[in-house]
Design a binder for these strands. Structure first.
Lengths: 187, 187
DNA sequence: CTTGCCTATGCAACGAGTTGCATAGCACCA
DNA sequence: TGGTGCTATGCAACTCGTTGCATAGGCAAG
């Protein structure tokens, strides 16, 4: 049910439509929680039926009308309750790691291109996060801090640390693959 | 379908029963891919029906019989095919990060205990990984390396790097929460 | 002027993953 | 001898998440 709570947090930070939420899940929130628009629309309707959200039809010029959702009092209470419950420490789902172990039963060198591709994606994400940090937190035009923004920033710092760690690890993986291809002993 | 491939890799590394696989998914393989015994049994039956796996009934003394699965030729071919296909770079599902951003709408200090609990879990995982590394790879009793073990080791190094990064980040989170509780300005 | 893209929402079907429960023999401890 | 726990497998029901498709108006480029 964590999608419910991610939506509550996002709507508390700023009310919006399903479509807008879907785009947020491709950026900021999506850095640590993903969802497709299908899931979002379905959950929004359910949460509205449960009284956790309010809806407001908003007519727009030049584009289709939208339904703007915001958090109702029971939704805020539900979030608060969840914040006081313990959650399971996350477990990874790292498909590339499965591939790397699987490469032992195939040609390890064939993975080099794939690992390099992943490395580029992570380098892009890191650049994107760093730009966001500069824009929203550390740059000259950034607004003054408040508790909410402090917490957003520490989460972003986590994303940055994750991407840096991943880049270092992928370099380690590439070095290992090249060593194996050359038939050399471990470093 | 990544569970299929994780199972193929694990069974190639060593044949075993559903029960044994379930325990591996609580340790080594489970460091980067999780699965419950339910899922494993179901997938094993399906893969056997598809001809990807062979089964052998093994009678045991003092314990129930088991079905030992091993990878059949078509299974190996399927793994090889998958290794040559690109996969999506992973996206995170980090519930704790949702909580941290949500704390802005509640009492941030109330999260301290939860974050400390997660920190302990990650410290335990790191100690566990380091012990495994010492036992299987870097210690005096470790067997000589071969390509398969080299690849297992680089994946384990990734797990170690992940846990270290996470510990550092959780320290950052705790410092941030304490700063907010004290009403102090950002560092 | 038409092809393609963006905003905006939704249905239907499927596949992946979780939770609760059930069974059953053996071992170990009090 | 009775409770607890481990090995070993499985069913049923459910929720979560993905994929493919559909609609519909407006906008911009060619």
């Amino acid at each position: 049910m964590a999608l419910d709570h991610a939506i509550l947090v996002s709507l508390l930070e700023r009310p919006g439509s399903g479509y807008e939420l879907a785009r947020r899940f491709e950026r900021s929130i999506g850095y640590f929680w993903t969802a497709t628009h299908q899931q979002i629309y379905r959950v929004l309707r359910r949460m509205e039926a449960e009284g956790l959200l309010d809806v407001r039809e908003v007519a727009q010029r030049g584009r289709p009308d939208k339904k703007e959702y915001s958090v109702a009092a029971p939704g805020r209470a539900a979030l608060s309750r969840w914040l006081h419950e313990p959650i399971e420490p996350e477990s990874l789902r790292h498909e590339l790691a499965v591939k790397i172990r699987g490469a032992a039963f195939d040609e390890p060198a064939a993975l080099v291109g794939e690992v390099e591709r992943h490395r580029r994606v992570h380098a892009d994400r890191l650049a994107h996060y760093l730009a966001g940090q500069e824009r929203d937190f550390t740059g000259p035009g950034a607004p003054p801090t408040d508790p909410g923004r402090e917490l957003q920033h520490v989460v972003l710092r986590g994303g940055i640390a994750y991407e840096r760690m991943t880049l270092d690890w992928l370099d380690d993986v590439l070095a290992t693959l090249h060593r194996l291809a050359a038939g050399l002993p471990p470093a």
